[in-house]
């Protein structure tokens, strides 16, 4: 474990906590894409299949349980909670995430480290995570209303992935532990997807103006 990875995990944890708190306290999910949340629940469900078979560490298991619990409860809130669901703008959140899931599944079947169920599912979860933010970014472009909690959520998510890239570099240099190139590429693609958001987010923060994404 190194500082980059620990802070990456903490940033990731913060992003889901921020989101859950927002939904739970103000009982609203305005501006949040349910499609992205469903994709994240899928990411964790397919990545943590080994939670009971391969024990890595207490930390690892606890974090997996937290990510599974938070992602599924966010989806539950947005779908079934009688008050929260009313603030979900399904007219705007129309991204067909099936068009993201299918290519990821096909790619995972073709490009993977080892053709076993668990390995293919793990690779699939990497590809889905790389594109999971797209529905949320599309929704932000459409609704233009980035309330600062949603902005913080996306920012923290991007920061976590960027920290993970530093973690992979660190591990490569120190532990001679190379992360599989699949992990590298999908992590890089994911971080790049945030790049433009980061640009506008930091600019708006610097000029202390409301965050506006270009049309």
């Amino acid at each position: 474990m190194n500082i980059f990875r620990l802070s990456g995990d903490m940033t990731h944890l913060m992003s889901v906590i921020v989101l859950l708190l927002k939904i739970h306290t103000i009982k609203s999910c305005a501006g949040i894409s349910l499609k992205t949340q469903e994709l994240y629940a899928l990411v964790f469900a397919t990545r943590y299949l080994d939670i009971f078979t391969d024990f890595v560490s207490v930390y690892n298991t606890i974090m997996k349980l937290i990510f599974l619990a938070t992602s599924f409860s966010i989806v539950w809130y947005m779908r079934h909670h009688k008050i929260v669901r009313r603030s979900y703008d399904k007219e705007q959140d129309t991204f067909r995430h099936l068009f993201l899931i299918l290519p990821c599944l096909i790619l995972a079947l073709v490009v993977n480290e080892k053709f076993t169920f668990k390995e293919v599912m793990w690779t699939f979860s990497l590809y889905v995570e790389a594109v999971a933010i797209l529905p949320q970014l599309v929704l932000l472009q459409r609704t233009k209303n980035i309330d600062n909690l949603t902005g913080q959520y996306v920012f923290l998510l991007g920061a976590y992935r960027a920290l993970y890239i530093l973690n992979w570099i660190y591990r490569y240099l120190t532990e001679k532990h190379f992360v599989h190139w699949i992990t590298w590429i999908s992590g890089l693609v994911q971080t790049l997807l945030y790049a433009d958001f980061f640009y506008y987010y930091i600019n708006s923060w610097k000029n202390n103006v409301r965050l506006q994404l270009p049309a």
Binding site: D50, S57, N60, K64, E119, N167, V179
Partner: peptide, 10 residues
């Protein structure tokens, strides 16, 4: 072929 490493990252 080396055993695929257990994915120790989240």
């Amino acid at each position: 072929v080396d055993q695929p490493q257990i994915h120790d990252e989240l």
